[in-house]
Design a protein around this nucleic acid. Structure first.
Lengths: 148, 148
DNA sequence: TTACGTTTGCAAATGATATTCATTTAGCTT
DNA sequence: AAGCTAAATGAATATCATTTGCAAACGTAA
């Protein structure tokens, strides 16, 4: 499993930053990795709390999510209203999202040409891109059919 | 000026929805139209409050911004952390944004090919797009030069 | 101009996220 | 292994943007 590799790379990251290797942090990594879908932090907090065993406090979850973002294992992928949806991206290839505003379904996609065109735009503006997010909001196939 | 036309179309919109035509709402439209740049609501509230004359309360600004979004004159264009940046789009052609994470500068761009590719992706997934947002975060030319 | 439903302003509620602070813990250093 | 120090944790509290409840003011149609 690549979770172990991820954890060891996360360990390197922490050491390098002078941070400490704690049980809590790695537990949260495990939880997020096993959650298996897009998540909001509050959702994650509740889910972790409902699991038996050791729990991390809300604050620690928030703090660790931040760390994991800096580390690059997590990405803020959807911003809808005042909700922020995260995704565990470690090891996954880059992609964008279609979001059904009716049922909340999230569909991932990747179009190389779009990425290339973005690079082109950045070059044209002498802009150095760090990251980007493309969200397409609409109605998914199923919801469209239900409307009939 | 097309602000007048905009206001009369907004008036139609309100009537059609059974809402009322109030001075406050149109004052806010004027303010936003004359603000001339991307804005956050709190920024707008402060700006309106600093102007002499009649002011609209914070709640009314928030409520009217919502209405204007539904109406289509305003768009949420950038979501960064817990900030939401809006733009007055009435009459403007559609475009996306480059955001400098160093100085906050916002650069608008439009690439037809990107739009087309998005439509293609949606078709491939039988997804009916309603709207989309492409944000490219990075470092602008000026900030890059300052780094030297 | 009356009558009724909507809008407004204010204050208070919310909800997500951040922070403070006292306590515990990780990871040196002897 | 024991001690030391800075960092991490949990709980409570603060903050920030945004929303809501409510009484008073206002817009509209008859």
């Amino acid at each position: 499993m690549q979770v172990d590799e991820l954890k060891s790379r996360f360990e390197q990251f922490l050491k390098q930053k002078g941070y400490k290797i704690t049980k809590g942090r790695f537990e949260i990594v495990d939880k997020i990795a096993s959650y298996g879908k897009h998540f909001e932090i509050e959702e994650l907090v509740r889910w972790i709390a409902n699991q038996n065993k050791t729990v991390a406090s809300r604050s620690t979850v928030y703090r660790t999510v931040r760390l994991l973002q800096d580390f690059g294992a997590i990405r803020e992928v959807i911003k809808l209203g005042n909700r922020t949806i995260y995704e565990f991206v470690a090891g996954k290839p880059h992609h964008e999202h279609l979001i059904c505003v009716e049922c909340g379904k999230i569909i991932e996609f990747y179009k190389d040409e779009i990425e290339e065109l973005q690079d082109k735009v950045c070059e044209e503006h002498s802009f150095t891109p760090l990251n980007h997010r493309l969200e397409i909001f609409g109605i998914c196939k199923d919801c469209m059919e239900k409307r009939t």
